[in-house]
Amino acid sequence: MRIVVAIKQILDPEGITVNRRRERIFINREERIINPADKCALEAALRLKDAHGAEVIALSLGKPAADDALREALAMGADSAVLISDKALAGMDAPTAAMVLARAIERLAPFDLVLAGQTAADTGGDQTAGRLAELLGLPQVLQALELSLDGGRLQVVRLWDGKPVRAAVSLPALVAVSPLAPPARYPHGARIMNAYRQMQVSVWTAQDLGLTPEELTPNIESRGQVFPPERELGTVVEGPPAQMAGEILSLLRMRRLI
């Protein structure tokens, strides 16, 4: 079994304060970490490896510093690591990033399972997993908590409406792992040493992936940052469905929204 885990290196959100009044973001402590949900995805892959044997490949798209995230993945137990890093890839939007990752995953074929974190703790986009599944033509399961192999099918416990439910999917598939999934293991100290001293991280460029400048032209233009206005608390409507629908209709009418 070959598992590709897509991980993203982010600035530790705990080192960041957001000052709403001054509309500024302050970085108090610049520490780069593996995005928590991605780390859970890596842990899920390693648990499959422990239970059934698997080859785990960690993949990251980012700046050269993301090498550290991949070394940490190697220290945790990944078998190999690939970093897609190229100046030509700077300033990508989410659709382009997913496309680049998909291209790299195709290059890693054959694979049985692609894992990614459900959400990134920095941008909170929640897009990559879904886009990857679409681009790779894979069935997808989102919000996964636990993975296990049952014959040829992957059994997944996933969150549905805040509650764990069972799902099953045939392989190959893509699974997005929730940040609420079991936390990652501590890497063994000796593996940490070896991850830097003995193991390699392959570096792929845009050219290696055959990406053209047109493909890399962003569809989204960033014009700056604004702070969203603080929202008032919403109204919670409760009761049987018919009654709730009636209440919602009247609320919308009162506000002249319909």
């Binding site: 550290d68 890497p187 100290g189 940490i192 040493m193």
Partner: peptide, 15 residues
């Protein structure tokens, strides 16, 4: 500090 020791420190600190 060599990078492997940074990661080692982080691991031990978390532990």
């Amino acid at each position: 500090l060599p990078k492997e020791y940074e990661l080692l420190r982080r691991m031990i600190r978390d532990f």
